[in-house]
Design a protein around this nucleic acid. Structure first.
Lengths: 340, 340
DNA sequence: TCACGACATGAGAGCGCTCTCACACCGTTC
DNA sequence: GAACGGTGTGAGAGCGCTCTCATGTCGTGA
């Protein structure tokens, strides 16, 4: 066993060449005689040389790291494996490009400051940001840092449409909702209700828009519209409200699977059968959707792929800052099971 | 607005002191006159100075980063928010100590090599590792890197008990299982079956041991023992097997909530009622456990806290390499709901 | 044979920081 | 008044790397 951490210098001495040549070989820079290149490579292997990233990034001004910032209330992150999937895709793509994934979870006000300072400090080459709420400070932080940034999910703040520096990756919530509701309509349902998520999140808004599209409505019928908050309990409560109004719905489109699960619970408690009395469609295709009784008809989105695309866009703008990249919307797909 | 990234030198010039003094102030080293200290601090604020971490770690040999390595098949990571919770706890504790969280997800053989090289390269100060399977190469990689390491979940390989360099944090699976099964026995159940997870994972093994403890058994009755694989379908299948044998069980302890959910499904399909005909207890207290019908009696473990403890142990050994830290086992708690 | 360009290699500066060491200055003691 | 220790500050080396530039070597054409 040789020294713990041999330096470029040591490899150079071992191979009988200069530091510069070893550097060229290690970095794959052309212009080194093949035989010399081989010799150096052997020395590298023999000594177990690993470049010191601190020294490298000190001179290159590149860190080889990307920050993934997730600003989410506990509930959302815990209730579904959304971020785990997302991270999986991101991780794959980043490591394929020799980039490290620096995870920053934001919970409280102070965390925003910490993240802001960190990003502005130039410790990473770019960032991937998740925040589902309107007017989240993350946008400002990203802008202040001057770092290439890709958002997960369409962000939302006044005038975002005009901001062409904004790059995001989102699933096609509107189209997915459209498909789900159209499916209900086509199977003969006439009084299709909707349970919406928090309307300060674009996903909830877009899904409601898809519902309106499918039914050709300017505004949903107030009697057929209830608010959940993307939680099981919220869905159960919303379903109860809907049943207490008239006309009673013969179908429900829930803004996500959690709320659909809650709706199922209420329906069961009221002695109504699904899908005979009331058809139910969810959104997200979480694992529990398939375990539900009856199994949920829902909308699937390829979340892992969404993560991959985010990372890919970022990598592209990292490698070529000139050519701007544009946002991507991933298609959604209806999964028909027993509930509708 | 001043230069994008002012250096120590610039701050020194601005404050009219030497680089060394600024460094002392920035790092909180004592031995600087209070008035000078204030002056320097003002300059730092005014110029928006942020230390360059590359330069710093080049000389200190400290990176200020910790790698979190997760080697898990997709299924586990996706099916439950276990790691999301874990990461939450880890993230909190690390950022409280000004350490960065570097996430490395291992999926295939090649990833192990990549991680091994990276860790050996001295890019991080320590590692937190997750791997539930026997003989996972992670242990070797950790050892080879020479980095302080804390494992999540008790690892398992030949002779691990004698390896006192090993530090892990785990929940008390054995005791949790004991409580769960004792609860079944105390409510008058006589034929308590067990559905086990993959027995190459310590959590599955320990939960089985707890089952034996509670019943005072050397080995479980083969007729009352079935294998799931920690999945819903596995649990459903195992439950069917158990019901086809005799004597039919009047209670089931499932090694996790997923399998318990599957068991519930089979019982419902067979027209058996829970808990009247068969009582069911799960493990983990995932969110879907509470949504099940009937809601699952299960065992809760404080996963966020587990993450915090892992990070805390690592931080401690980072700050004081002399004093060894010892493993920690987090208590588990029975949550009684409708299913048993 | 000589001038020339193409190509391969080495020398050396410098990235921004920490840390050791030398030095200056002060108050104390004999 | 000289010697002393304590304290605060600055000078400067050096961490391991990249990258520019100078230098050396070769093949080609006149």
């Amino acid at each position: 066993m040789s020294a713990a951490h041999p330096t470029l210098e040591a490899v150079a001495a071992h191979a009988g060449v200069s530091r510069a040549t070893v550097s060229r070989v290690v970095n794959g820079t052309p212009g080194v005689r093949p035989e010399l290149r081989e010799k150096v490579k052997r020395s590298v292997a023999e000594l177990g040389y690993v470049p010191n990233s601190a020294a490298r990034s000190l001179v290159t001004r590149r860190t080889g790291a990307v920050a993934v910032v997730i600003a989410e209330p506990e509930t959302r992150v815990f209730a579904d494996p959304f971020f785990a999937r997302q991270l999986r895709g991101i991780s794959r793509e980043l490591s394929a490009n020799d980039l490290q994934l620096l995870l920053m979870l934001v919970e409280e006000e102070a965390d925003y400051q910490r993240v802001g300072r960190y990003l502005a400090g130039g410790h990473v080459d770019g960032t991937l940001m998740f925040s589902l709420h309107a007017n989240d400070p993350l946008r400002g932080i990203a802008a202040a840092s001057g770092l290439p940034t890709v958002f997960g999910g369409r962000p939302w703040w006044p005038g975002w449409e005009k901001d062409d520096s904004l790059v995001y990756v989102d699933t096609d919530n509107r189209d997915g909702a459209r498909r789900a509701v159209r499916h209900l309509a086509e199977s003969g349902r006439r009084r299709i209700a909707v349970i919406t998520g928090p309307l300060d999140q674009t996903s909830a808004v877009d899904r409601l828009a898809g519902y309106r599209d499918a039914l050709g409505l300017e505004e949903p019928d107030p009697a057929l519209h209830a608010h959940g908050d993307f939680t099981v309990d919220g869905g159960a409560r919303a379903m109860a409200e809907l049943l207490d109004r008239s006309p009673a719905p013969d179908a429900v489109f829930a803004g996500n699977d959690l709320m659909a699960t809650g709706a199922l619970r209420t329906l069961r408690a009221r002695g109504l059968s699904v899908p005979e009395d009331v058809a139910v469609v969810g959104y997200d295709d979480l694992d529990p959707a398939a375990w539900a009784d009856p199994p949920l008809t829902t909308v699937r989105q390829d979340i892992v792929h969404m993560g991959e695309i985010m990372a890919r866009l970022l990598v592209r703008s990292l490698n070529d800052a000139q050519t701007p990249v544009s946002s991507v919307v991933i298609p959604s797909e209806l999964v028909v099971r027993g509930s509708a």
